[in-house]
């Protein structure tokens, strides 16, 4: 039965995490010999027929939908879309929105729920999907026993593949009760790459000695198209804003590159970053626990090493 993927869009473009979810949904649909439908709530200037290049057959768009901060209204729309095409697999990205809407859809459809999936379903013996647990310190296999499944895909866990194809775009109107949630204000940090979505992250810790030394972190981030982050000690000391704090009590991230400067790597910090593909650690203490979790390391003074790294990246162009 058909696969439905929930699409998140912003400022006229489809989010990268949603494209990953589409490619994941496309792989499931191909294996099951069925079609892939994408659901878009609200208006966007993005070319939706181009989603065909990710394997989408049909795009269902609900132009008149505006309640994008209301999980109840969104789940209602997704459940109605899934019902109208009799989808048995509904895929979200495991983003802030996906995490908040997917469980509601699972309840509405009586579906089994897997959040943070990192593998395609294994159907050789039941329907099994892998996910991270214990803040990335272990994996588990979830057996889904219901005929309908709702899956949220972990960002950066599935490769984007392009195919040939053009999707048909159809307009829909669903009967959804008026939202009672009012958005009063939105504050966006502009000009910087959102940490949760970043492919590369340059992060600084107490070893940098003070906020006045963040210039080199920011310069390397700018050169490599990375977001900036920090350890808890740094956020608590107000050297950097709290939304940059990664770790157990801050944000958990899984970029392709996590570049840590002057961070010792306490277990709570590792819990937020150990799903990163490549970890680089610069620390002058050879005993820093972070080296055990790192792929590349330099034992050295950040104030001497970082300018050379920045220079080398510049020369690379």
């Amino acid at each position: 039965m058909p696969v439905l993927v929930f699409i998140e869009h912003q400022d006229g473009s489809i989010k990268k995490q949603s494209v990953e979810a589409l490619c994941y949904g496309s792989a499931i649909a191909q294996r099951a010999g069925t079609t892939l439908t994408a659901l878009v709530l609200g208006t966007t200037s993005a070319d939706l027929s181009a989603l065909g290049t990710y394997g989408v057959n049909q795009v269902m768009q609900v132009n008149a939908f505006t309640a994008l901060s209301d999980t109840k209204a969104m789940a209602n729309a997704v459940a109605q879309a899934a019902g109208s095409i009799t989808a048995d697999t509904i895929v979200f990205s495991n983003t802030i929105t996906g995490k908040a809407v997917a469980p509601r859809v699972a309840v509405r459809l009586g579906a089994g729920l897997v959040t943070g999936a990192i593998s395609l379903p294994d159907t050789t013996n039941g329907y099994r999907i892998q996910k991270n647990v214990f803040s990335g310190k272990a994996l588990t296999e979830i057996l889904v026993k219901s005929p309908i499944r709702v899956i949220t895909l972990q960002p950066n866990a599935f490769e984007i593949v392009h195919q040939e194809g053009i999707a048909t775009v159809t307009q829909h109107a669903f009967d959804i009760p008026a939202s009672t949630i009012t958005v009063k204000e939105v504050q966006k940090s502009s000009g910087t790459i959102p940490l949760a979505e970043a492919e590369r992250v340059i992060s600084g810790g107490r070893g940098l000695k003070g906020p006045e030394h963040w210039g080199m972190i920011e310069e390397l981030a700018q050169l490599t198209g990375a977001a900036t982050a920090c350890s808890r000690a740094v956020a608590d000391a107000h050297w950097r804003p709290h939304h940059e704090h990664v770790g157990q009590t801050g944000l958990a991230i899984a970029p392709n590159l996590y570049f840590a400067v002057g961070i010792s790597g306490a277990i709570q910090h590792l819990a937020g970053v150990n799903r990163s593909k490549t970890i680089v650690v610069i620390n002058k203490d050879p005993e820093a626990p972070f080296f055990k979790a790192a792929d590349y390391g330099i034992v050295g003074d950040a104030f001497e090493v970082m300018p050379k790294i920045i220079q080398a990246v510049k020369e690379l162009g």
Binding site: L113, V114, K137, A138, L139, T140, I142, L143, V144, A293
Partner: peptide
């Protein structure tokens, strides 16, 4: 219940 936790594994050790 619609799901169950079947099998835990530890991630492969870093090289």
């Amino acid at each position: 219940s619609t799901t169950s936790n079947e099998q835990f594994t530890l991630p492969p050790p870093k090289a």
